[in-house]
């Protein structure tokens, strides 16, 4: 079902990847002075080359958790490990350059051209500007943008285009890990859908370890190999595949949060003229069962 929507059904043959780019949270807590704990005792393993989505409403600490991975937030206690190494042992600048990061508002540098934005990390790593720009131009195509846009400034692009550039920038140094902090939250629904499809397509080719944060349950189910539903304060309400969570919500909070009872999620099959038509809880047809 998830891959049926891909534009191209290319069968990618990947080298069997070893267990690299594993992110582990070990009892991570973060308390800001004068506030209740943003995150308390959070533990999770993000397996190699899989996409894990943290989903929760505001106050669930999902962004805080994501930002402990690249040390934009330092935990008050607990550890974050990448391939067994505590990120605190790593130089923060080198660590951040080794991780792709996509932010909600693009976070592009308004004074640099699109190509230079994409080439940011390779250039910081000392790759020649020209070479980095050529690679950036290819990446631009890869995320579905006209390479001609490369000379423009971010302010001249639409919100959706900026987010694509943000994804291209995150991929430029070919990191094993991608952190995505509500990357599609600020674009309109149609554009968001396109971006989500694009990400699925890219992930089918690239197989990064993706930690994705969103408040949108549908987005979480679409993009996550695994979904982690968070309550207030970074408490895990349930973790599992989208099917597991939707099929067997752990409790009322999860049931309510993922909308397991929503009419559009309650599908039933009706026989209409000998064809099995799926209808939702309000009786609206949503599809036909494949023969």
């Amino acid at each position: 079902m998830r891959f049926g929507s891909l534009y191209r059904l290319t069968v990618t043959v990947l080298p069997m990847s070893g267990e690299v780019a594993v992110i582990e949270f070990e009892s991570v807590s973060k308390t800001y002075p004068g506030h209740a704990a943003a995150v308390a005792e959070f533990s999770l393993v993000v397996p190699s080359h899989r996409s894990v989505v943290l989903v929760g409403s505001s106050g669930s600490g999902k962004s805080t958790l994501l930002r402990t991975v690249n040390r934009m937030v330092e935990p008050t206690s607990g550890r974050v490990l990448i391939d067994g190494e505590d990120v605190r042992e790593r130089d923060p600048v080198a660590l951040r350059r080794s991780i792709g990061y996509v932010l909600q508002h693009g976070g592009l540098l308004p004074h640099r051209s699109v190509l230079d934005n994409i080439a940011t990390v390779p250039v910081l790593n000392g790759i020649a500007k020209r070479e980095a720009r050529t690679a950036a131009s290819e990446l631009l195509e890869r995320v579905g943008l006209d390479p001609k846009l490369g000379r423009r400034y971010p302010g001249q692009l639409s919100g959706g285009q900026q987010q694509r550039v943000g994804v291209a920038r995150a991929l430029a140094a070919d990191p094993e890990i991608l952190l995505m902090d509500e990357p599609f939250g600020a674009v309109d629904p149609i554009m968001r859908r396109d971006l989500q499809e694009e990400l699925l397509r890219l992930q089918a080719e690239l197989h990064k370890t993706i930690l994705f944060v969103t408040h949108d349950v549908d987005e979480a189910f679409l993009l996550g190999d695994e979904v982690v539903v968070l309550r207030e304060g970074g408490v895990i309400a349930q973790r599992g595949t989208p099917a597991e969570i939707l099929g067997a919500p752990a409790d009322d909070f999860v049931r309510d949060f993922v909308g397991a009872d929503r009419a559009e999620r309650e599908l039933s099959i009706m026989d209409i003229d000998g064809r099995a038509v799926a209808v939702d809880g309000s009786g609206r047809p949503v599809g036909v069962l494949a023969p």
Partner: peptide, 23 residues
């Protein structure tokens, strides 16, 4: 300078000096 731009620059791996000169 938009603090979000500055923070994004740090998050993608600019050093403190790099943030000053480049951003």
């Amino acid at each position: 300078v938009d603090p979000r731009v500055r923070e994004a620059a740090v998050a993608v791996g600019h050093s403190p000096l790099g943030v000053f000169w480049r951003v």
